[in-house]
Simulated assay, not measured.
Amino acid sequence: MNNFKILAINSGSSSLKFKLYDMPAGNICVGGIVERIGSSEAQFSINDKTKTVPIENHENAVKCLLEELLEQNFINQLNEIVGVGHRVAHGGEFFKKSTVVKEKELEKIEQLGELAPLHNPVNAMGIKVFSEILPQSIQVAVFDTAFHQTIPSYNYLYPLPYSLYQKYKIRKYGFHGTSHQYVSQKAAKVMDLNFKESSFITCHLGNGASICCIKNGKSLDTSMGFTPTDGLMMGTRCGSIDPMILPFLQKNLYLSVDEVEHIINNESGLLGISGISNDFRDVQISAEKGNPLSKISIKMFVKRISEYILSYASELKRIDGIIFTAGIGEHSAYVRREICKQLACIGVRLNSRKNRKNEKIISSENSEVKVLVIPTDEELVIAKDTYKLVHNLVKV
């Protein structure tokens, strides 16, 4: 097998997260993030060292990143990077797996921006910039929705007129697929299980949050839907609500569609209820100081997660493990404890000491269901998928 460098990219509206891998071994050469793109005081972090630099746009961010890789000898020349894998939020029904991106594919990713307006446009922008600056590298899109393509129609269809699905493809797509796939595969290894015969409930809990029901190694159901706004209460997103609230707001507050969309995506969730922050850590501190709305927002957050887990437990019949991952899932022993209290009815029991220490398996010996904390690594999934697609196309 050929050995070469793969760059895994996660583009945000004002950020660019990256990891450079030596593939196929999967060894990380370097990783970091460029934040506050568009500012004269952008933050460029690489290998835990941060410097403040002016970065006008994503093109400047990419140039700055590549210059740093050359300067610090992580690469000797740009053509060592033979593939760039990009996280793309929404693949619709058009993209069922990771794919090499050319003009036609890029156009489709941009069109799907209507379904993921906070994500697809900046994902597409990242692909464009790298295509221009690294024309010799193969660009690959790795879709958050791909893992969920195995969800059966009775779970992905909405109870709307079927003609709306036929004409507009209105259905559940699901997101965070690379994360759900990675942590469930990792958990199967930890538990010495055959992944293709395993059943997990994975909880990706961060500023964006979703839960996935995995049976025999395949996504059976997930909480996010047509867009990433559906499902759980999140940092700024409302999650599932009575749909008639939206026309009510439009009629009574004379709001436009864009204004309502802004409320449900940017002003709701933990931020909307607590009035403090979209960051769970800030809300928890506020709750500990006695802020009643912060306390309520945490109870709502925990309740909705628990309800999804219990509904998926009934769908699976047998659960090999419940997995917590992402920022809150990996680091908040408090959230895990509060959720698992609600799961006592299905035999979940935590080991308090292991939970506080964020150990891999945090359930007690007498727990009927294993509970695990598995750090996610979406970038590694991106790098692996990219390598699979490009290693036969590149002559080294």
Rank of each mutant, 00 (worst) to 15 (best):
M1A: 09
A8D: 00
K19A: 13
A25F: 02
I28T: 12
G31M: 03
I33G: 00
G38M: 10
S39C: 04
E41G: 01
Q43E: 14
I46L: 12
A61C: 12
V62G: 07
E68M: 07
E68K: 14
H86C: 04
V88I: 13
G92H: 07
E103C: 08
L106E: 08
E110T: 13
Q111F: 05
A116R: 05
A116Y: 05
H119I: 11
N120W: 01
N123L: 02
A124R: 03
E132A: 14
L134V: 08
Q139T: 02
D144N: 09
T150H: 08
P161Q: 09
Y162S: 08
K169L: 07
I170F: 05
F175I: 08
V183L: 12
M191N: 12
H204C: 11
G206E: 07
G208C: 09
A209T: 10
I214A: 08
G225F: 01
L232D: 04
L246I: 13
E261P: 00
S268C: 05
I273A: 04
K289M: 13
S294D: 05
K295T: 14
I298P: 02
K317G: 00
S332F: 10
I339D: 06
K341H: 11
R356P: 00
S367G: 11
L372H: 02
D377M: 07
H391C: 06
